[in-house]
């Protein structure tokens, strides 16, 4: 049951920021609502004000250019990415992550930015966006700023936004030459489920880049750029060190979805398999 609230639907970001400044009590932004409405219904969270941002045209931007990379506006949904030819061609790892995110109905509503702003440790989009190189485009009462995604997550369900700020969109770097990337997810079932472990990997032999990112194995998503490792050492040694690094960087817990021990194992196995898939030994 949802408690009484005041619903607002501004047309512009400016108006939204003004509302955020003027509304009394707790205020939430509403895009897809797939997290917010669940929490309101469970009474886990009850805002006095809900600002529906779906009327803001600017947030619907989904653009790509070779130089600038991808701009992914605050209202772009998971299914928009899945069904976008451009995304399938340039950033297939985002498609993989979106497909593993939830059910079809939820993906029709859930936004990529919402997944990031929720800052859940297991947010499915976080690892993929981290390895691609993403900045968060933030607008607030004091102007605009770009926050590297890796710095955006500050704790379990906490992000770096300050009072009155909203996320306008995400800037994803241009694809690295010759790169391959993928996202592996471990959940309890094959159907829609929250992540128990999420691993995204990206590698480019041409550019000597190797990156991994992990979800659901620490209070915030974990990002590892191990390009140097693969530049300095031979493949086997680099791989071995990567495995050690992964184990040292994560701090999983035991909960209803999995155990600490098993999460460590899966993070390791998935990392190794992704590495072999994206940059196999024979490839070097």
């Amino acid at each position: 049951m949802i408690r009484d609230l005041a619903y607002h639907k501004p047309d512009t970001i400016k108006e939204t920021i003004e509302l955020l400044g003027s509304c009394e009590g707790k205020t939430s932004l509403l895009a897809g609502g797939t997290d917010l409405v669940v929490n309101m219904r469970k009474d886990a969270y009850h805002p006095d004000n809900v600002i529906d941002v779906k009327g803001i045209e600017e947030l619907k931007r989904l653009e790509y250019s070779e130089d600038e990379g991808l701009y992914l506006g605050g209202l772009v949904t998971c299914n928009q990415l899945i069904f976008s030819e451009m995304i399938n061609e340039k950033y297939p790892v985002l498609v993989e992550a979106c497909k593993k995110h939830s059910s079809h109905q939820i993906r029709n509503r859930a936004t990529v930015v919402g997944n990031i702003c929720g800052a859940s440790p297991g947010a499915d989009l976080a690892p993929a966006l981290l390895v691609l190189g993403t900045e968060v485009d933030v607008v607030g009462p004091n102007g605009e700023r770009l926050i590297p995604l890796v710095d955006f997550f500050t704790g379990v369900k906490r992000n770096a936004l300050e009072e009155g700020e909203i996320v306008r969109g995400l800037k994803v770097a241009s694809p690295i030459k010759g790169y391959k990337a993928n996202y592996s997810k471990k959940a309890r079932i094959k159907g829609p489920d929250l992540s128990a472990v999420g691993v995204a990997g990206l590698a480019s032999r041409e550019e000597g880049v190797v990156r991994f990112a992990f979800g659901a194995v620490a209070p915030t998503p974990v990002y590892l750029d191990v390009s140097d490792l693969f530049a300095e050492k031979d493949y086997k040694a680099a791989k071995e060190e990567l495995m050690e690094k992964v184990d040292a960087s994560i701090s999983p817990i035991t909960d209803v979805r999995s155990t600490e021990k098993y999460r460590r194992r899966i993070a390791g196995v998935y990392t190794r398999r992704l590495l072999e898939e994206l940059w196999g030994e024979g490839d070097k």
């Binding site: 949802i2 619903y7 639907k9 509403l30 609502g33 797939t34 409405v37 669940v38 219904r41 469970k42 809900v50 529906d52 779906k54 299914n79 059910s103 079809h104 109905q105 939820i106 029709n108 509503r109 829609p192």
Partner: peptide, 27 residues
């Protein structure tokens, strides 16, 4: 379920299948 997990409340909104339990009527 009321939490968007079971799909019993699925309707088509502007051509897309959505779970109507997670959408405010005002939306």
């Amino acid at each position: 379920c009321g939490e968007g997990e079971c799909g019993a409340c699925t309707v088509i909104m502007d051509g897309q299948a959505v779970t109507s339990c997670l959408i405010l009527a005002v939306e």
